[in-house]
Design a protein around this nucleic acid. Sequence first.
DNA 1: CGGAATATTGATCAAGATCAAAGCGAGTGG
DNA 2: CCACTCGCTTTGATCTTGATCAATATTCCG
Lengths: 226, 226
Amino acid sequence: MLPLPTTQTTAGYRTERRNAPAASVGSPLNPIELMGAQMPFSRDAEIFGEKEPAEYIYKVVSGAVRTYRILADGRRQIQAFHLAGDVFGFEPGEEHTLSAEAIVDSRILVIKRTAVEALAARDNQVARGLLALMARELQRVQRHVTLLVMTAQERVIDFLLEMTACDPEKALTLPMSRQDIADYLGLTIETVSRTFSSLETAAAIELPNSRRVVLRDREALSRLAN
Amino acid sequence: MLPLPTTQTTAGYRTERRNAPAASVGSPLNPIELMGAQMPFSRDAEIFGEKEPAEYIYKVVSGAVRTYRILADGRRQIQAFHLAGDVFGFEPGEEHTLSAEAIVDSRILVIKRTAVEALAARDNQVARGLLALMARELQRVQRHVTLLVMTAQERVIDFLLEMTACDPEKALTLPMSRQDIADYLGLTIETVSRTFSSLETAAAIELPNSRRVVLRDREALSRLAN
DNA sequence: CGGAATATTGATCAAGATCAAAGCGAGTGG
DNA sequence: CCACTCGCTTTGATCTTGATCAATATTCCG
């Protein structure tokens, strides 16, 4: 509501990334960020847990974060990966409905929620920013729903394109493990691994090592993805 | 953000339903609804389409609505079913990212978006209501993501429980077809039909006819749904 | 009543899961 | 420096779930 930027990054609401789509997006928390403090989290450290009071809003300064939920049958469902510039943990309820962990050693900007609330109550611009934040998150989750009805190969390609969407580089280093990817795509680790291999065989990507991916033919990938 | 009701209906942001969880939820558009006009839509009529300017916000007065997207491969993905009391079509961008159709003959309250925007800009209470609306929608879509990684039987049961969540009645008349259900659950019509049959065989439900479902043993269902 | 749309049921197929066995790489200690 | 180990990844063989193809059955309406 209220004129909001319609542009969206596919990998999350992200700011301060190179190739940012002009100033229109900007940082939704710009006026607030000054109030936050940076905190280091080491690999696999929990940032917040499900059912904990949602006292803070977070922004990835460096590193990477996964937000997830443990399902009734014990499986882990990863909701999203958050990279540098992404805001996460912004939930309107009193309690977090997700857990968050650092995927690698990360620096996270932590902002008190009450501070944001207070500011939003007075400053309409801030309130609008929050709405935009949530709107972009909504679109991201909707994309995730769409992803989950596609084939394994389509999911993996979509994931790769999403990870490089804001990034013209052809090569990337994935911060997350195969298991993380599998839990995000709703596949098994074996299927993810096999799909990576078959994409390499098809000359669409190169895998110098398990964490490194070179998109050799983005066009071919896009075609396969659909 | 800002003290919001944490209660949520599983089937959407819904108001004016019996057993409403106290006054805390209320109608998020209460002050605004007066500005809207009721319009009738007949079965399968389009309410709005993807890419159309998002000029209005909608609320189901009676009947049922499906919001959906057509995927690149031509399949239809149903995003949500909206029943009486549900608000839909509230998208922050300039254009709709989904299409909406009446599932059965329906009466829809149509409210001009600019009117809501204007009010929200002045009245913080209204702005907060919009945020709550979007937050509940976000949670609904997150539930949908979770649904799509479960087995066929779990998805169908989850759907049935969702359709009756706000409703203590054991019997319900589904407004939507098997195809609609299949496109919502990411299954084929055959699998949905077979799962319904097997649940009937297992004495968990009764199917007097294809649109009518009687939940014979809600406990058993919940257990099967895992 | 007839015909079209929708739903059910059956038979087979295929994508991805599961079970199982290497392969690889980074860190550790001899 | 090299062997060893542990965790992660890849690859292989087989099985299961749900898709697909196909044939009725039912319902809805004109």
